[in-house]
Amino acid sequence: MAWTSILAIYFLIWVMSAFMLLPFGVRTADEAGIAKVPGQADSAPVSFRPGKIAVRATVIAAVLTSLFVLNFEYGWVSADDINIFAQRPAA
Rank of each mutant, 00 (worst) to 15 (best):
P89H: 12
L67N: 06
L22I: 13
F85A: 15
T58P: 08
F11Y: 07
M16S: 08
F48H: 10
F72P: 03
D42Q: 10
Q40F: 12
W14R: 00
W3N: 06
A44D: 03
A57Y: 00
V26I: 15
L64P: 08
S47L: 01
A44L: 12
V77K: 05
G75V: 00
W14E: 01
E73M: 06
P38S: 09
T58W: 14
A32W: 06
V26T: 05
I13G: 05
T58H: 15
D30N: 02
L64R: 07
V69A: 10
L22F: 09
F19M: 05
F19Y: 07
F48W: 03
D81S: 15
A57V: 00
P45A: 01
R56T: 01
F24Y: 15
V77W: 12
A32G: 05
L70T: 04
I53E: 00
V37Q: 14
F24D: 02
V77D: 03
R88H: 04
A29T: 04
M20A: 11
P89V: 12
I60H: 04
A86G: 03
T4M: 00
T58E: 10
R27V: 14
S5G: 09
A79E: 15
S43A: 14
A79Y: 13
V59P: 01
S66P: 02
A61C: 03
F85V: 02
Y10I: 03
F85G: 02
S17H: 09
A2Y: 07
V69R: 08
A8V: 06
M20D: 02
R88W: 06
S5Y: 04
N71K: 07
M20R: 00
V77N: 09
F11E: 03
F48T: 01
S17K: 09
A8W: 03
R49F: 10
G51T: 10
I9N: 03
V69C: 14
V63A: 07
F24E: 02
N71P: 14
L22T: 05
I84M: 12
A91D: 11
S78W: 10
D81G: 05
A90K: 11
A29P: 02
V46G: 02
R56L: 06
S43W: 12
Q87D: 15
D81Q: 06
A32C: 06
E31I: 09
Q87P: 10
G75C: 00
F68M: 05
V63E: 01
A86N: 13
I34E: 15
F11D: 00
L12G: 15
V46A: 10
F48G: 02
N83I: 05
I6N: 04
A8N: 08
Q40N: 14
R49W: 07
P23Y: 09
D80N: 08
K36P: 07
P89Q: 15
G75P: 10
A61V: 02
A44E: 14
S66E: 04
A62T: 05
D42T: 04
A57W: 02
A35G: 01
K36L: 11
L22R: 09
G33R: 11
G75A: 12
A8T: 01
W76F: 14
A79R: 15
V63M: 06
A90N: 01
G39A: 14
A32Q: 15
P38M: 03
Y10M: 04
R27M: 13
